[in-house]
Design a binder for these strands. Sequence first.
DNA 1: ATCTGTGAAGCACTTCACAGCG
DNA 2: CGCTGTGAAGTGCTTCACAGAT
Lengths: 212, 212
Amino acid sequence: MEIPPVVIERLPLYARVLEALAQEGREVVSSQELGQRLGVTPAQIRKDLSYFGRFGKQGRGYNVQTLLSALRQILGLDRQWRMALVGVGRLGRAIVQYEGFAPQGFRIVHAFDADPRIVGQEVNGLTVRDVSELEEVLAREPVEIGIVAVPAVVAQEVIDRLVRAGVRAILNYAPIAARVPRGVQIRRVDPVLALQSMTYYLRQVSNAQAAK
Amino acid sequence: MEIPPVVIERLPLYARVLEALAQEGREVVSSQELGQRLGVTPAQIRKDLSYFGRFGKQGRGYNVQTLLSALRQILGLDRQWRMALVGVGRLGRAIVQYEGFAPQGFRIVHAFDADPRIVGQEVNGLTVRDVSELEEVLAREPVEIGIVAVPAVVAQEVIDRLVRAGVRAILNYAPIAARVPRGVQIRRVDPVLALQSMTYYLRQVSNAQAAK
DNA sequence: ATCTGTGAAGCACTTCACAGCG
DNA sequence: CGCTGTGAAGTGCTTCACAGAT
């Protein structure tokens, strides 16, 4: 069965709330309550989960631990993922030092940069290598995921090289609409785009007020 | 006319590519070429733009400058937006120092933190204030947008305070599904969620190979 | 000859509403 | 009686396909 991409995007949210509930010691939760916590309709949660099986008990709801384990397994969060970072400038450095990846099983194991002043530096216990060694290093010690934090002009080229080196998923911090072959996953992290779509609605408000 | 939210989310992308084309000195561009650069169908671009007017010339395409100006005006990018950052830890510091906001007209004018060791520090020419002064400062010097980079446990509370202080748009870096009242815009910047939805597809590949 | 703008068709996602189980 | 799981209905978004402008 082909599962709608939007469903896959919501599962990590569900998992996150279930983790919080588990920590609170809750054993059971209804789609109603999950929905309330997430701002999603209960029907949507039930439908989403139904793509993967029957996890609930009628009249009761879902066992928090059971559902959490199921989601973690479905999403592949029950294992470690290795990542290679390309671009260790200001942004890249912040990414290496970000404490949010490791507890979720995502580990940066290589860091590359093109700037000779940065190559050789140690960042958070990781030695920055020259980006020219990318293919060689990834052949020896492969990773599943690439993180791109290089300037826009070279981002597409870096992404192409990562893909050719066998990386099947890319987290792209560069402000470009990168193209990847079918079968390769890519996600954009782009706060400026987020801001620019919000201002549309802010503008509307100003206009409505001006029209009064 | 009510414009589909997905359309609004794509407009900043169009604007970005048009900026690049303008810099290359291109005068005219077709929906076909725009689509190619963005990985979007030409029909979608034409349909999206048609919500706002008729910007193209049949047989020719779109004038790059004219369309760019129109989009900037529609999105409200033809003005400055003031932002307040809450949370000046490692992540917050990286946000203040990020050079990508200013050239797009987004300026951080206040920074708040709760940690007395951080309050009073100067970061990128900005003095960090105590978060208890948030309401007071925003009443005196309002901002349109709030940026939240605080720990998950306090994020919802901070967002509520920002909204009560008149902020109509929030960029949320905290890993929670925050709730805001109708009419307030919110966008999540959450690399971990992005990673966790990609691993679903990576897992599929491993499984397919294992099944051989 | 080329490329836009747009109704209409098609597809994807969400919500409804209720049978059925605990 | 409460809450799940799910076909069916409803909604929203995308793509088609072509008339019409240059």
